[in-house]
Design a protein around this nucleic acid. Structure first.
Lengths: 220, 220
DNA sequence: ACCTGAACACCGTTCAAGT
DNA sequence: ACCTGAACACCGTTCAAGT
């Protein structure tokens, strides 16, 4: 009666398909995930994949969920202060999405589903541990969730565009800065004034600064 | 020597192409924007569009920028307190992205480009007006930017999934709530505890609450 | 300078047919 | 129960040829 008996060592399975999808997404980006390319890697026909997976969206969400689950597993469950755990969770997700840029869009396309719920749960537990009143817990946890996912997705998009444009990070930041400096002086005073400091800024540090802002706001 | 002399009233132009793209995106979603469908609406051939637009990504970014520019134009420039202006900008963008859900992904795919810069500028001006020290202005403005765009994108994705699933908002929220209630009690205590209150929550209000959190953090 | 439309090289998905 | 692979209905993009 065991349901999970694999019939062949090398038989197709949802897990194998998801693993190969992740490999493909990591090496060739979102446009690299193709049923034909996947079928070739799995030494099978394109149609076979549909026996284990509903469609491409389902596959992408499943791959995304696998990354999120692993990331949260690696984060500390521990005895640290709730604020400390939230910082660790936030940084873990930031780095994971940076390492797997395709996770960003995938997360956005699967709103109230499993990957998001996993994150919400972990954040919510810590918000509760911070002693936030019952009525405010959802708002606090979802503000953190939105900020973490939002910033991470944007950061990954930046990095990906950088890679697409040739790779030299400092050169690209320099180009952005000089494009900003060339904007109209009357219409874009703020952007012009920060253009110079932009190439030196640290995305990770800014991200953490935002977390700090929100944590401070939650703690009143 | 006038550069902008249109040769025919009904001639193709970047502006006309962008307007029709927006109409197409609004009525049929992101998958509805097709060079063939667009060519039909414009009574021209698919290839003609490439004379005015580099590629599909360029077109999507331009359509997105048009929406963002209009939204910011409609927002108050006024004599109100900076916090008040930030709230108004935030809500305006939230509502615009809700009304044009395709703007979310489009914004994300055009990181440090024009649409984002427009928003950053407006927020930055207000952050400066709040009296934030020079060194902290970029971090504060970009935290606001990330939060606003991140939450709006997710909210629009939710709404869009709702529409795709049949439209009945309360029914869908109810289903999400009952799916959350059915999660494992040991692994998902937080999610289960908020499941009941979830269908009554107000996305817009939660969004504003998060803005308040960040503003409070910025003001120290 | 601008437009036409056929052609190219792809996609995701389905489905009869096999084992 | 699971896999095969051809076929279908699309895509974005290019490009010779026209005006």
């Amino acid at each position: 009666m065991m349901k999970n008996t694999p019939r062949r060592e090398d038989g197709l399975s949802r897990e194998r398909i998801i693993e190969e999808s992740i490999a493909l997404l990591d090496s060739s980006g979102e446009s690299g995930l193709t049923f034909r390319a996947l079928a070739e890697r799995l030494a099978t026909g394109a149609g076979a994949i549909y026996w284990h997976v509903a469609n491409k969206g389902d596959l992408l969400t499943a791959a995304c969920d696998a990354i999120v689950a692993r990331t949260l597993l690696a984060a500390p469950v521990a005895d640290a202060a709730p604020q400390e755990v939230i910082r660790a969770l936030a940084l873990g997700l930031f780095d994971a999405i940076d390492a797997h840029p395709w996770v960003g869009p995938a997360l956005t396309r699967a709103p109230l589903q499993m990957p998001m719920v996993r994150i919400l749960e972990r954040l919510g537990q810590q918000v509760r541990a911070m002693g936030v009143a019952e009525a405010g817990q959802f708002a606090a946890a979802s503000a953190l969730l939105s900020y973490i996912v939002g910033v991470s997705v944007q950061n990954a998009a930046n990095a990906q565009m950088g890679r697409a444009l040739g790779g030299d990070r400092t050169a690209i930041l320099g180009e952005v800065a000089s494009a900003w400096s060339a904007l109209d002086a009357d219409e874009y005073p703020f952007t012009r004034s920060i253009a110079a400091q932009f190439p030196q800024h640290d995305d990770r540090a800014d991200f953490l600064a935002g977390i700090e802002l929100i944590l401070r706001g939650i703690a009143r």
